[in-house]
Design a protein around this nucleic acid. Sequence first.
DNA 1: TACCAGGTAAAAA
DNA 2: TTTTTACATGGT
Length: 275
Amino acid sequence: MHLRLPRPYDFELSTERFRTFGPDLAYLWRAGGLHRVLCGREVRIEAADGGVRIDPPDRALAGAVRRLLGEPFDLAGFEAMARQDPVLRRIVERLRGFRPPLAPDPLEHLVSSITAQQVSLRAALAIRNRLLRRFSAARGHAYPFPSRDVFAALQPEDLRALGFSRAKAQSVVAIARSDLDLEGLAALPDAAVVERLRALPGVGLWTAEWFLARHLGRADVWPAGDLGLRKAVSAFFLEGRDASEAGTRALGERFAPYRSLAAQYLLTAMRVLER
DNA sequence: TACCAGGTAAAAA
DNA sequence: TTTTTACATGGT
């Protein structure tokens, strides 16, 4: 089944972050295609002319795949904005076809973010893969993320055994057991989402901002506390001088109201472009 | 061997 | 109120 996406679309470039930090059991790259469990079924996604091809062919799956591939982002509007900035314009030209993916599941995104707090993304991925092997089972090749019920029934000790810190293990279990309606957050404005998420243990501004940008697909989020983004701002805009969180946040204002795409283009540019 | 890596919360100043 | 510290793992 063929899925058309707004042109230009570069599937391999857009899914680079599922491969760069090592094999990811939840987004498994295999023989030129991405395997992912959506709606309880494994789907294989591969590049095709003007978009992607998915197998099995299914209407409901197709909608989920479109969202996974970041279809909601307004790339045309972003590109028009980016043309006004000489540095960003050059990056957008060289990353032609990049459309950042969206995380399908709120709890999965939160837990994954928590694993990635402070440690390298390779370390975080190793921990998350151990979590999947221990508390999930492959459907085909890819592993579905465990449900909220599974986490709610765990003891923090179970997660500590996988490499979570004591605080992270307690946070994940407490979040799963909390009464917050994670799906319901999609109906709230950005500030209200941040407020609710930050009330959860182990969730700070960084985690909440990436949730907005990478799970909800909100257009104008700029996670200035992110070390990778600060390094990108330093490299592309400050000739290598250190970028503070405050300085990074101030610099990002020029990319409104498309800061989410700007941030993700900069992060990807740091990894795949030479400078 | 240390030290750093896409933070957060709690303790100390 | 602002600054410092502990935390866990993987790579170099």
